[in-house]
Amino acid sequence: MVEVGAQCPVHFVGSVPLGSIAEVLTTISSAAAGAHVSRLPDGELGGKKGYVSNQRATFERLDAFQPGAQRSDWRRLNSGIQQFALKSLKEVPTVADVGELGHARWAMEAYQTFRDLKQRGFVREETRLKMALPSAYGVLSFFVDRESVPALLPTFIAAIGAEIDRIAEEIPHDQIAIQIDASMEFEALASGDARFLPISVAEAAGQLAQLGATVATDIELGFHCCYGNMNLKHYVEPKDTGDMVAVMNAVCSGLGRPMAFVHMPVPIDRSDDAYFEALKDFRPGSGTELFLGLVHDVDGLKGSLARAAAARRACERFGVGTECGLNHRSRDNVLQIITLLGEVADALSPDMASASR
């Protein structure tokens, strides 16, 4: 059974485009939604901006790669992505060759601000700083031609794991949570598009479990299931929660450690029972929080509660969030959504409390 607190918790996926990390942390903490949040995002600002696009410099500086074809980006009209290819499939870079990816450095910068604000009373004592990192398949699918991906997966799983190790060395474990973002995996499963290296449910779960297992057991670990976010629209719309449930169930089975939370998106037009039906088969470990990204600003409180009502027919207890990060939004819109998240959580909390009895 998915376990959450008596109140309806709120989850921020990652990107919150405000002026600074401090503004992200204090704005959420001081809003009504803040009382429902146990993991504060860093906002993914500055050099960290971009789910995987912040890794372009990694491929540009490695001698093992050469520029590949400028392939069309099926998610954006009239645009392309500069891909890279291994010069030789027999000369794969090592973790030492790959070096720093930036995630540990960004985490330390965010933690210094987080720690200072907590000491000054602007951030609640019980909250953690949540750091989101991409999966290896996600990074490689974006930047590397599909023929090179299989050879590179072990190296990049280990390289991202090394970043997680450095975060664990520098930041107290009870102050942080690590979120693994899985986007390209679910886009590939949903679309079958030939531009992706084919991946199965078992393969996606195996790679995510391997990466998740690098997180120390006393650090909270969670996963964000994603279908992309370009101009406030999924790259591929999930037909239901089936793939997400299948992958996350398999991750739980292969992880070998607790999973603190899972986030799954809910498209704005899905308040039907069919979308949520697979949640009846979701079998995370004890203590795992399920967050459903069913809050949309377009139809506000009424539409969000309609989706929540449908979700509760499959799963009584869950937290809420938006379907993806808040990138591509104006400041005023971000503030509006933060307020809306608090309103939805306040409205759902009595139902969640009754379900916990």
Rank of each mutant, 00 (worst) to 15 (best):
D297V: 12
L86S: 10
A31F: 07
A151R: 15
M230F: 14
A309L: 07
G80P: 00
L290I: 09
K49N: 05
G192D: 09
T27K: 09
H224K: 07
S286D: 13
S253M: 06
V13F: 03
D299V: 11
R317M: 12
V247D: 02
R166Q: 15
K49F: 13
V10P: 05
S38N: 08
A202T: 14
I176E: 03
S53N: 04
D218A: 05
L40Y: 12
G102Y: 13
V295T: 12
T241H: 06
F261I: 00
A151D: 06
Y137E: 12
E44W: 08
L341G: 01
Q210C: 11
D273F: 04
R312N: 08
L140R: 03
P267I: 09
A168Y: 08
S135K: 03
E316P: 00
L255H: 00
A188K: 00
A188L: 00
V16Y: 07
A159I: 12
D97Q: 11
A246N: 10
V144L: 09
P198D: 10
A306M: 13
E109P: 00
N249H: 09
D181H: 07
A204N: 09
A22Q: 13
Q179G: 02
V236S: 05
R329E: 02
F196E: 08
L301A: 07
L348G: 04
S253K: 14
K302G: 04
F12C: 02
A132H: 00
M230C: 05
V16G: 06
K118F: 10
S38V: 12
G5S: 12
D351M: 04
T241F: 02
D281A: 15
L140S: 02
Q207L: 11
P67I: 01
L340G: 05
M230E: 04
G206H: 07
G256C: 11
T58F: 01
M1T: 14
S20A: 13
G138K: 03
E289A: 15
D240E: 04
E220T: 07
L40R: 03
F122V: 01
N78I: 05
T217F: 08
S79D: 14
R357E: 14
R166I: 03
C324Y: 09
S79A: 15
D273T: 06
P9E: 06
G222K: 03
H36C: 06
K130S: 12
F12D: 01
L117K: 11
G47C: 05
G46K: 09
T26S: 15
H263T: 04
